[in-house]
């Protein structure tokens, strides 16, 4: 489970301090899919950055099970992220100089895992025929499917997704939502997804929105 204790984060612009999150407390259970809903600039991405250990909170602690990632060094946080977190981005963020297959093998190599899982997961996302293609010849939907496969291939416990359908048309978005529903849910992963689209709400166990610098649950 993930636990946020009194987490605050702000940024300064010159001498002015802008608070984004203030004293956030949050518990996310194992296997739960939580959606962070809100308009652009509401602090969703900031929270995802904190959860990934990319940024550190100004105050408070973040626990992944019994690991307090805010107490880890930069290197330890990176290694934690490498092993236990999978990312899905709005703009896919595949490495343009690597083929589909190599993009998938990258997390396996970083975690010293065998490569054989790459074909299997590509089959699951329906892209076995594009295994040697470079990202620039794939459609947006295909790229996002590869990105989802890459986020899951090393079997992380937690999936963080930032507007995964934000750059896709309605039909493709639906396919991606189905895919996430099928794979992520089936595998019982914990997932936190930031979005401003209501189309993905069906996936969620819980939907949270930011109000007065704090997340509250939506009905």
């Amino acid at each position: 489970m993930i636990k946020l204790e009194n987490v605050s984060k702000g940024y300064s612009e010159g001498k002015v301090l802008h608070t984004i999150l203030s004293g956030v407390n949050l518990n996310i259970n194992k296997g739960e899919i939580v959606i962070l809903y809100g308009k652009s600039g509401s602090g969703k991405s900031t929270l995802l950055n904190l959860l990934a250990g990319i940024d550190l909170p100004d105050e408070g602690s973040i626990f992944f099970e019994d690991v307090n990632i805010t107490a880890l060094s930069e290197k330890e946080r990176t290694l934690f992220r490498r092993k236990r977190i999978g990312f899905i981005f709005q703009f896919f963020n595949l490495i343009p100089t690597l083929t589909v297959s190599e993009n998938l093998k990258l997390p396996l190599e970083l975690n010293s895992m065998p490569f054989k899982k790459a074909d299997e997961i590509l089959g699951e996302v329906g892209l076995l025929d594009r295994i040697n293609a470079y990202p620039d010849v794939l459609s947006g939907g295909e790229q996002q499917r590869v990105a989802i496969a890459r986020a899951l291939i090393h079997n992380p416990d937690f999936i963080l997704a930032d507007e995964p359908t934000g750059n896709l048309d309605f039909d493709t978005s639906k396919q991606i939502i189905d895919l996430i529903d099928r794979i992520v849910k089936q595998q019982g992963k914990t997932m936190i997804m930031a979005t401003h689209s209501k189309d993905v709400m069906g996936l969620a166990d819980r939907v949270l929105t930011l109000k007065d610098d704090k997340f509250i649950e939506m009905n």
Partner: peptide, 15 residues
């Protein structure tokens, strides 16, 4: 910068 950022988010360390 973008590729390097992706590497970092996938867990590639600074070193």
């Amino acid at each position: 910068k973008k590729i390097l950022g992706i590497y970092r988010s996938l867990g590639v360390t600074e070193n």
